[in-house]
């Protein structure tokens, strides 16, 4: 068990973050907290990817540093994925602003009540 934590600790933390994010997505009644949960979920995935790229005793992937290098390809992939995540959060927040204007509340149960009336 301790052995598992020592060698695979980062991966466990990444999946813990994913779990926390999923719980926030499902469990929070507030829409903005759901979006924050989505962000935490994606952060867990990014952490997973980046820790997989690490090489023991490796140096940063810069030409001025000596080999062996930490693998730079996952870094680039995650940069793209982070930008995608930011765009998604931006669109989600824009939609939430519009929902707030229409329904007057950010809580999912109240929005559903108002929507059922219309």
């Amino acid at each position: 068990m301790i052995d598992l934590l020592a060698t695979r600790g980062y991966f466990l933390v990444a999946f813990l973050l994913m779990g926390v994010g999923t719980y926030m997505l499902i469990g929070s009644p507030n829409l903005i907290k759901k979006v924050i949960g989505m962000n935490v979920f994606q952060t867990g995935i990014f952490l997973f990817f980046i820790t997989s790229a690490f090489v023991e005793g490796g140096s940063p992937p810069l030409l001025s540093a000596p080999p062996p290098y930490v693998s730079p390809l996952p870094h680039v992939l995650i940069l793209t994925a982070i930008v995608v995540g930011v765009s998604l959060t931006a669109v989600a927040l824009g939609l939430i602003v519009r929902i707030y204007d229409e329904y007057g509340s950010l809580r999912e149960s109240e929005i559903r009540e108002v929507a059922a009336d219309e």
């Binding site: 931006a90 669109v91 824009g94």
Partner: peptide
């Protein structure tokens, strides 16, 4: 591009009713 989008989004969301149409 990213600078333009960040500023545009900030103003769109801050304006309230005009935000949320397109990314």
């Amino acid at each position: 591009i990213v600078a333009g989008i960040v500023t545009g989004l900030f103003f769109a969301i801050a304006a309230g009713t005009t935000g949320g149409e397109s990314a």
